[in-house]
Design a protein around this nucleic acid. Sequence first.
DNA 1: ACCTGAACACCGTTCAAGT
DNA 2: ACCTGAACACCGTTCAAGT
Lengths: 221, 221
Amino acid sequence: MSSTSTPARGRPARLDPVRTVETALDLLDQSGLEALTMRRLADAMGVQAGALYRYFATKQDLLTAMAERMLAGLAESDGEATDGDWCEQLAALAHAMRAALLAHRDGARVFAGTHSTGANTLRFADRLVGVLRDAGFTDEEAARALFAVVNLTVGHTLEEQAARQPESGAPAAPEVLRAAVTAGSYPHLSATLPTLTSTDFTPHFEFGLGLVTEGLRVRRG
Amino acid sequence: MSSTSTPARGRPARLDPVRTVETALDLLDQSGLEALTMRRLADAMGVQAGALYRYFATKQDLLTAMAERMLAGLAESDGEATDGDWCEQLAALAHAMRAALLAHRDGARVFAGTHSTGANTLRFADRLVGVLRDAGFTDEEAARALFAVVNLTVGHTLEEQAARQPESGAPAAPEVLRAAVTAGSYPHLSATLPTLTSTDFTPHFEFGLGLVTEGLRVRRG
DNA sequence: ACCTGAACACCGTTCAAGT
DNA sequence: ACCTGAACACCGTTCAAGT
């Protein structure tokens, strides 16, 4: 927290990109994505809104920096001890990414809305692709499996966070779905309602991830 | 286009929900999600912005109605001729959903940002779950497979549409990724760059979908 | 070099008042 | 019943001017 990274003389700058992104993530956790405005962030930094544009050309850039920050330490989450086979390593990476997104309110929405090509993002992707290439998969297969795992993980996390926090005043998502399904004639949805409205998302995620890894195992022969 | 569904006497209402949603989708296709504002939609309907709120309590409700409208005819896309085994039927449904989202500019973003429980959405989900239940899967498995397929499909379509339309002025997504990867040391990403930067998204989607269906096949035994 | 102050061009939403 | 007009409380972004 002390200014160990402020080499400049004179009055220290009130605005530095790292602290700004951290403050933005704090604001996100406290109030959600809707309430994260450049003006409110500027307020939290003790500065005018326009000053932010010296470090972030656009709000989208700020959001991208936040997404990148969320993945800090992701690629090294399991250390260099590459225990387990490629299947377990793949699952561990996916679980780590899910945890990173769930760690911040609306984390999945921020991530899905940006396209970071920062070091944290690329190192993670490189490790995931590396696990698959080392396991004997084709370059093409490894790259496409990356898409599948990331898309599945982001998609599930998006759903999970959306279900957790309904718009204030409205009933929670599971209740809305239950009402809609029972009002119409959807025999298969009715039969599966308990699972569809379950708020325990971890088994849902693990099922989807299991399908993908199983599919990969088959494809490798 | 003629007013066949206007039972009211006197001056016909300028605003009816169905035409409003259709106009909103037209506006979306022409200018994208960013440019879709209540004011611009009102303009296109020849009305003041406030008038829209008699039919849609909130912009979010309008977007939800648009998402629901996008899936019109999805559940019946293959007719009642249930040709092929459950695997082919599942793939056909996923492909139909992808096509429905790709049919509108930013279609995936609109869908991902809403939670429709309308008839088109529920009929589609009911059919997908039905295919799996009829194939012998557990209620729990069927429901969770629905999540996996939908999340994968939405995730892939989100990526595809994001890659197609970069923010004006900026270079396209593949070029940004190529530059970032070659700038750092990411051996596995470098090796798979041709696939990672490919703009042909159909094989990417089919690979991911293939993994899921293969995984389901294994799980059924 | 870095930030302020103030403006520009918008937003979503509400609601009295008209017809 | 349905829409207008006008306002409220904001937005992201820009940029001269200050220090």
